[in-house]
Design a protein around this nucleic acid. Sequence first.
RNA 1: GGCCCGUUCGUCUAGGGGUUAGGACGUAGCCCUCUCAAGGCUAAAACACGAGUUCAAUUCUCGUACGGGCUACCA
Length: 411
Amino acid sequence: RLVEAGKAYRDFTPKEQRADANVKQDIAERARHASNEGTDQRSNPFRELSLEESNHRASDGEPFAVRLKIAREGRSSFEDAVYGLQERDYSEIEDLVLLRSDSHPLYNLSVVCDDIEMRITDVIRGQDHLTNTHKQILIYEALGATAPRFAHLPLILAPNKAKLSKRKHGEVVSLTTYRDRGFIPAAFRNFLALLGWSPEAEEREIMSLAELTEKFTLAGIHRSPAVFNFSDADPRQWTDQKALWMNAEYIRTLPLEELLPMVRAEFERAGLWRAEYETTEHERFSKTIDLIRQRFHTLKDFSGQGRAYFADDFEADPAAVEKNLKKEPRLRELLPALAERLEKLETFDAATSEAALRALADEAGVKAGLLINASRTALTGQAVGPSMFEVFDAIGQSRSVTRLRDAVRLI
RNA sequence: GGCCCGUUCGUCUAGGGGUUAGGACGUAGCCCUCUCAAGGCUAAAACACGAGUUCAAUUCUCGUACGGGCUACCA
């Protein structure tokens, strides 16, 4: 239709082979040549070929690409909702190819046709399309269609300021990485929303989808790109630290009933899930999750660091054993003694276990901290964790007693 | 090469002719404390540079530098 209307023309120039690897370099060189030779964007010899001859050569089977015929004089302009008025002289725009010589359409033609067909009113996309928008608008015009409103968003850059890409930066840019490493969707979404956009008159950074949606305005979008800060060298900074922080924030503050299904999914993956956690043991399960989530950073931590709260086969951290068990030989007697006292308790909870432990410490003339820290390592294999008396309560009487006795082997 | 876009603490950002340039993450210190977190308090940390306009520029204008994007019979 465009060829018939004289808005596009067939280009019978043989197709140039271009190596993908150095296109950018090719382009620069070709541009330098063109300016030296004094050739402009309208110098294609087939641009003015008569329709008759064009039709004739085409029906003879000669291969051709179809190019849009851009006017020699004038300029293209549009109002971008983020970047403002954009103008570009026609002389800067080449007669872009619409259809390849194998008759397949190119991206620019395809998006425009799709968007017309789908009656798209607003196009919001990356800034890498900003300059090309002029070309697309020219296609809309040639087709007699109204162009949608455009809004371009700043790109996200790698720490070296290059455009962040899957090709170059690998898994750190893949959404599935975040899912697989225990991110909560809402947390990552929240983090991403604040990269390149900021809400008006709002100091809080933790925002739900509903709040984000409600506060969103195109005017709040920045024009400068944001750096996604991570380090290949440091595993603790495998992704942006603020994203990591935000995920931890979500893990400890999300309503428990929203967190539980995510923990369940993680437990199922790790082989730790038991049906009772939703029936007879539900209360204990959710109480324990609520206890341990306070210092976790990802969903993975529930099956990792949290394993000892739900399974008997957990590994003891050698550094913790060294620090809390091996340093004091008297623990060889004290731990079994504590086990015995805990075993005798009729009601076993944080308060009664605390009383029993402190009484033993007093009688033995040792600091309560000694027994507390030793118990932590005996019961969880770790040097860190929640308040010890809550841990006794969470792990339960019989398991606590057994683990205290077993820990003597480690001393 | 040409065209377009950008530049406030290390990073994400607020602000916008007169401010002690605010917050968050991270970092450091203190408090709390049975450990580690969390929390509270405190600290170090920024307006790329040069001209111009102005009584006054980080803020406005112009240049420079630097960064990014586009410029394909890629998407």
